[in-house]
Simulated assay, not measured.
Amino acid sequence: MKAIGFKTSLPIENQESFIEFETSKPIPGERDLLVKIDAISVNPVDFKIRQSGAKDTVLETPKIIGWDAAGIVQAVGEKVTLFEVGDLVYYAGDITKPGSNAEYQIIDERIVGRKPTSLNSQEAATIPLTALTAWEILFDRIRISAEKDKGKSILIIGGAGGVGSIAIQLAKKIAGLTVIATASRPETIDWCKKQGADYVVDHKDLVSSVREAGFENVDFILDFVDTNGYWDIMVELIKPQGHIASITGSSDPVVLNKLKSKSASFSWEFMYTRSMYQTEDMIEQHHILNKIADLLDEGVLKTTLNVTLKGFTAENLKKAHELLESGKMIGKIAIKF
């Protein structure tokens, strides 16, 4: 089968930053599906791993990355119960295994969902990683519920990005929250409003912008940009007994002590935790993806696809990574095979 990977970490403009090669079609294990991929999506995790996954070394076999795909089940392992050959599926994958930048991929059925029938493959491929991340951060980490939290305020830092775009929709349409999203360019402000944000504020002067919008403090904050870069701002804006959650990580320790007087909480979200550690509730991602598919098919949620490249080539992967590395990408980018 054809695959695209890299042997060493190089700048994306380098000719060898991605290389096309032939490799054996993988064989599914007991609970695995063999999926023939029809479309993939590219996320910031892709370029971060490309930049660091083979630094100062040259791999003997190219590393295949990619963690968003839609396709058709070609074969199943002997203990698979959730899917059959011929099923259309979508998923975000497992960061510990070869990724979706290939014609075929094996994937544990417990982290796979049925493809939304209302979306084409490239629209569907943009959804899994960002939707799982947004769903988990809202409903598993902060444990927001529409019953007890409806009408409360949430600040989403990075509203026009892939995760921010779907998080706005989930926070507004499923949790019933008052959504404040950050953006600064006219096109990103417009995008956030189209996703359902009630207010769009300028991340360059966030405290003043939030307060000018009428909020002294907010109940919840989601950070999709830079934990430590926004830490003091988030500490100032969070309500007493509020909750902050982040996906971005930090090379420096986060000063949690600054939250003490407010008795505020802080959580990390890492979408790969369940698959990486084979947690007892790993199948929850299967259920979440199916819920998301239903919401998309019902028209409650909408795709966040904004750019489509046609053709599974190294050049198109390079273009996708260049767009993401620019920091100006709005919504999601997909590659149709």
Rank of each mutant, 00 (worst) to 15 (best):
D202H: 08
G77Q: 02
I37Q: 05
F6C: 08
Y90P: 03
S275Y: 01
G162A: 05
A314V: 10
I330F: 03
A70L: 05
D94W: 07
W231K: 00
K2G: 10
A125G: 03
G331W: 04
V76L: 03
W135I: 03
S275T: 12
G162K: 02
K310E: 10
R110N: 15
T8L: 08
L206C: 05
P11M: 06
A102N: 03
S24I: 02
T273N: 04
K25T: 15
S24K: 15
P26R: 14
R50S: 08
L305E: 12
E16G: 09
V207E: 13
G158Q: 05
E136S: 10
L256D: 13
G161S: 05
Q169E: 04
D108W: 01
N228V: 01
S267G: 07
I137S: 06
H321D: 09
S251N: 14
K258G: 05
S17G: 00
Y272R: 11
E60I: 03
G77C: 09
T248P: 06
K173A: 11
E236M: 00
F337V: 07
T117D: 09
K115V: 12
L132H: 00
L305K: 15
S52T: 13
V200Y: 04
I154K: 04
T188Q: 06
S145G: 00
E22N: 13
L323N: 03
P128F: 06
W268R: 15
D294G: 14
D294Q: 15
D297A: 02
T81Y: 01
